[in-house]
Nucleic acid binder design. Structure first.
Length: 575
RNA sequence: GCGCCCGUAGCUCAAUGGAUAGAGCACCAGACUACGGAUCUGGGGGUUACAGGUUCAAGUCCUGUCGGGCGCACCA
C-alpha cells in the first residue's frame, strides 16, 4: 500500500506535477473512524508548504497517479484539508489471513534491527533479600522489551548484574551473623544499617544447620565472612527461583565482584587517568563526567580508598561495550534517573554517542488490596515480595498488570482485582478470547466439521464489515509491534490485545461461526443498515461461510498468541 | 534553590503533530433454548491543570505559572 502511494508520488514527479526533492516519511495509518476508510494518509498536507500549493490539489494529483488504483481500492476520497482516505478491496484484506497463516509465529516480526546486537540489563537487584513488587515490574518490562527487540530483528541478550560487592554485602553478612548469634542465645548488638527482614533469621538458621559447629573454630571476622558468602548464595538462589517461577530467564549473569577481583576496575580507572578523564582531589578520585554534559564530576574512589558504585559501573558498561553490543538498554527504577547523565558520560568517554545507552525507567508500583494501599517499608523489612504476588494472583495476571501502563508512570496494582477471574480482569479477557477460539476447534472436531487452512479456503465470502474490521485489526499488528519496540513501550501491545479481544468477543456474540448442533435451522441477521424499509435480509450460515470464518478465527488466535508471547504471557486453550 | 518525570471522564489510564480526544472500572438500563455469560448491547459523562507561542493542523512541540512525584552523596 505504501508502495502504491510512493509510486503515485514518483509518477507525479516524473510528469512534473510535483517538485519536492525528497518525500517526507509516508504516513499511512488506519484512521480512527470506519467511514474514513481503511487507510488514511496526510502526505498531501505535509507537502503543502514545499509544493506551495493547496493540500487538496496535491491530494488530487496523488490520487490521479496511484498505479493500479482500481485493482487496489474500492474507494479513494479526499477530505477537507487534504486527507487521503483509501478503502481497500476486500480481496486484499483476505490476503492478510493467508499471510498470517504463512508466517504463523513470525507474523508481526520485522527486520528493523538488522541483527544489531543489544544487551538488555534488568532487575539486577542486590542479593541482599527477596525480590519485591517493584522488581517484578522491572522484570516484566525488561523481558518484554527484550522480546520485542528480538521480534523486530535485533540479536538480544538479557543480563542480570549482580551487586555482590561493597557495603551492602558486608551489612548482609553482619546482619546474618548477628541473627546467628542470637539463635545461639547470645545477646548481640544488631548492625546499625543492617537488614531486619525475617528472611535474615531464616538464612541464619540455614547457616546454623549447614555449618553448625564448624563456625566456632573460626575468628569472628571469618565467621562473618562465611555468613556473608552463604547468605549471598542462599539469597541469589532465592532470586533465581523467584524469577524462574515468574517465567523470566537470563542468558547471562554478571558479577560486580568479578570486576574487582580481576582488577578490571583498577585498570579502567588507570586508563581514564591517562586520558585526563580522572583526577585526584581532597584524597578522592573523580571521574570528569562534566566534560560530557553531566552537571558535575563524580567520585569513583573515596578518601578511604573504597571504590564507589560508579567505579564498578563504569567498568561494567565499558565491558558491555567491549563485548561488542551496538545498543545497551538498562532498565532502572525511576528513582535512579539522576544517574543517567553520568552513565551517558561514560558512553561518550569511550567515544560513543550517548544514545548508545538507553535507559528505560520503571516507576513505582502502588500496591492495593481492594482499594486500600498496602504500606511497605524496606527499613523494617515489611514489604510484599514478588513471590507473594505471583502466588496470589499468578504470573500471567501479574505480568499483564505490570505491562498495562507506560513503564514511566506510576502503577496502581490491586491484588484483589488482579486475582479476580472475571470480566474486570483484562488478562482473562484477552486469554478468554484465545481459549474461546480453541473451544471452537474442539466443538468443530467433535461434530466432524473440517477446519481447513486459510490457504485452502475460499475467503471471498468474508465481506461483512465486522469480518473486515477484525482483519483490519489483525493487519496493524506488525506496526503496533514495531512502534512498541522502537519506543521500548510494551504497554502498547497490552492495549492492542485488549482491543483485538474486544472485537473478537463482539463478533462472537453477534455472529455465528459453526452451524447449530442439532439440525435446526439457524439464520443470522444481516447487519443493520443494509437497506431502508426492506425486510431484514437473512442469510444462512453456509458451509463456505463457516469455513471462511474459521479461517478468520485462526488468524485472530494466531495474533493473540503472538502478542501474548512477546509479553511473556501464556495463551491457554482452556481456562 | 536546580534538574528529570507527570497533570486527559468520578477512578485507573490510552492516543507516530492530524479529522468529532478514546478504553476499562464505577453508575444506570438491557441481551442468547451455550460455537464456554470469564461474553455482549445501549446511556450519561471532557474548556486535555492554567496562560502565551510555533504550525495548514497541538493533549502531543517551545516558554512561563500552578499542583504532584522523584532525584540533587566520598549510598547503592
Amino acid at each position: 500500500m505504501t508502495s502504491a502511494l510512493l509510486g503515485a508520488l514518483n509518477g507525479a514527479k516524473q510528469k512534473g506535477q510535483l517538485k519536492t526533492e525528497s518525500w517526507p516519511t509516508l504516513s499511512l495509518d488506519a484512521p480512527k473512524r470506519p467511514e474514513w476508510g481503511d487507510l488514511a494518509s496526510t502526505v498531501a498536507m505535509s507537502l503543502a508548504s514545499s509544493e506551495q500549493r493547496a493540500p487538496h490539489d496535491i491530494a488530487q494529483i496523488i490520487v490521479d497517479n496511484i498505479p493500479q488504483r482500481d485493482q487496489l481500492f474500492d474507494r479513494v476520497e479526499i477530505v477537507r484539508p487534504g486527507f487521503l482516505n483509501l478503502t481497500v478491496k476486500p480481496s486484499l484484506w483476505q490476503e492478510v489471513l493467508r499471510e498470517i497463516e504463512a508466517q504463523g509465529k513470525a507474523y508481526g516480526r520485522a527486520d528493523l534491527g538488522r541483527h544489531r546486537r543489544v544487551l538488555v540489563e534488568y532487575v539486577s537487584a542486590n542479593p541482599t533479600g527477596p525480590l519485591h513488587v517493584g522488581h517484578g515490574r522491572g522484570a516484566a518490562v525488561g523481558q518484554a522489551v527484550a522480546r520485542m527487540l528480538e521480534a523486530v530483528g535485533y540479536d538480544v541478550v538479557s543480563e542480570y548484574y549482580i551487586n555482590d560487592a561493597g557495603r551492602q554485602m558486608k551489612l548482609l553478612g553482619a546482619s546474618v551473623y548477628a541473627r546467628y548469634q542470637e539463635l545461639l542465645g547470645r545477646a548481640v548488638e544488631f548492625p546499625a544499617d543492617g537488614y531486619h527482614g525475617t528472611y535474615i533469621t531464616e538464612v541464619a538458621e540455614r547457616v546454623k544447620q549447614r555449618l553448625g559447629g564448624a563456625l566456632a573454630e573460626l575468628s569472628p571476622g571469618e565467621r562473618e565472612e562465611r555468613c556473608r558468602t552463604l547468605a549471598y548464595e542462599e539469597l541469589l538462589g532465592l532470586i533465581r527461583d523467584d524469577l524462574t517461577s515468574f517465567g523470566i530467564e537470563f542468558q547471562s549473569w554478571f558479577s560486580e565482584a568479578s570486576l574487582l577481583s580481576s582488577k578490571t576496575v583498577e585498570r579502567v580507572l588507570e586508563e581514564l587517568r591517562s586520558r585526563q578523564l580522572l583526577f585526584e582531589q581532597e584524597g578522592a578520585w573523580w571521574f570528569r563526567s562534566s566534560a560530557f554534559g553531566d552537571e558535575k564530576d563524580r567520585v569513583v574512589r573515596k578518601q578511604d580508598g573504597e571504590y564507589t558504585y560508579l567505579a564498578s559501573d563504569i567498568a561494567y558498561h565499558r565491558d558491555k561495550l567491549q563485548r561488542g553490543y551496538d545498543l545497551l538498554i538498562d532498565v532502572w527504577g525511576a528513582d535512579h534517573h539522576g544517574y543517567i547523565p553520568r552513565m551517558q558520560a561514560v558512553m561518550q568517554a569511550y567515544g560513543h554517542p550517548k544514545e548508545r545507552l538507553q535507559v528505560v525507567l520503571v516507576q513505582l508500583v502502588k500496591l492495593l488490596r481492594a482499594g486500600v494501599e498496602v504500606k511497605m517499608s524496606k527499613r523494617t523489612g515489611e514489604f510484599i515480595t514478588m513471590r507473594e504476588v505471583i502466588d496470589e494472583v499468578g504470573a500471567d495476571a501479574a505480568k499483564f498488570y505490570f505491562l498495562m501502563r507506560d513503564a514511566n508512570t506510576h502503577l496502581e496494582f490491586d491484588l484483589e482485582l488482579a486475582k479476580q477471574r472475571s470480566a474486570d480482569n483484562p488478562v482473562y479477557y484477552v486469554q478468554y478470547a484465545h481459549a474461546r477460539i480453541s473451544s471452537l476447534w474442539r466443538v468443530a472436531a467433535s461434530r466432524g466439521i473440517a477446519c481447513p487452512l486459510p490457504s485452502r479456503t475460499d475467503l471471498t465470502v468474508l465481506t461483512d464489515p465486522d469480518e473486515l474490521g477484525l482483519i483490519r485489526k489483525l493487519s496493524v499488528y506488525p506496526s503496533v509491534l514495531q512502534a512498541s519496540a522502537a519506543g521500548y513501550e510494551p504497554h502498547r501491545i497490552t492495549y492492542y490485545l485488549q482491543q483485538l479481544a474486544a472485537l473478537l468477543h463482539t463478533f462472537y456474540n453477534k455472529h455465528r461461526i459453526l452451524p447449530p448442533a442439532a439440525d435446526q435451522e439457524v439464520f443470522e441477521q444481516a447487519p443493520p443498515g443494509m437497506g431502508t424499509g426492506e425486510e431484514p435480509q437473512r442469510e444462512t450460515l453456509s458451509p463456505e461461510r463457516t469455513a471462511a470464518r474459521l479461517a478468520l478465527m485462526s488468524g485472530v488466535q494466531q495474533v493473540i498468541r503472538n502478542g501474548l508471547a512477546v509479553l511473556g504471557i501464556s495463551a491457554p486453550d482452556q481456562m
